[in-house]
Design a protein around this nucleic acid. Structure first.
Lengths: 123, 123
DNA sequence: TGATATATATCGACAGTCGTACTATGGTCA
DNA sequence: TGACCATAGTACGACTGTCGATATATATCA
């Protein structure tokens, strides 16, 4: 298992793969469907991206394969979130929330500055 | 000016370039310093990344160059956030906050599930 | 019969970032 | 004086994760 530096940004598709699996055991296509719902259609995971991400996340130990099943004549590869995977998702969520908060604070200040300068300019 | 699809993820370094400029007019190296402070040392913008991002953001109209100045014998290239740039940053912040919230909700549910199954297993 | 949904595999292209090396000035310190 | 560091920007090859497209196969529905 490859140990990966934390403190490194996680891309949105990868984030949604973990977030989807936080809901419970799922197979590839199920993750795609779920991520789409979870994000209200905004995130459409591409198959290539998904399976590449699953391989990578397995290698990092954030996800484990929990058996293949044949349902309706079709193969399904199931996956589950590991504890490190859950921790990683939690960390990433926190980071994003912090970043968003910092940006919004600055935008707020900026908005009042812009309002003030507009007032000055028109005066 | 290239129009770029919204609904597309923004990478962390790019996000911090915009967030830094939301604070006001800055030159390249100033952005690096500010981004580092703003993120409590977590985000260390690389020079290559920064100037590439600034070129790109200019082409997208999210940032404008507002004059070069020579201070202490050294060239400084100054930049400012545009209104579309501020809007883009706001949108991105909102998206990240939403994603983080969704992930945390699921992790919370998962935590109670895990606690329940542990209890069952030990009973 | 053909279209659509489910389900996975594979692979080249691409964008943004990283890492490193380079030029150049000014200040500090031994 | 020379060595070193912080500031400031340029340049470019390598890398990673995602995209886009193609392929295979089964079940269902019109």
């Amino acid at each position: 298992m490859v140990i990966r530096m934390s403190n490194q940004e996680m891309r949105e598709p990868t984030f949604f793969v973990l977030a989807s699996l936080a809901d419970g055991r799922k197979h590839g296509y199920g993750i795609i469907k779920d991520a789409s719902e979870l994000s209200e259609g905004r995130v459409a995971l591409k198959v290539g991206t998904l399976y590449a991400a699953l391989e990578r996340l397995q290698a990092e130990g954030l996800v484990i394969a929990t058996g293949d099943e044949v349902v309706g004549g079709r193969l399904r590869r199931y996956f589950e979130l590991t504890e490190p995977g859950a921790a990683s998702l939690a960390e990433e969520s926190e980071r994003q929330e912090l970043n968003a908060k910092r940006a919004r604070d600055r935008l707020k200040q900026r908005a009042s500055r812009v309002a003030a300068s507009t007032k000055t300019a028109s005066a």
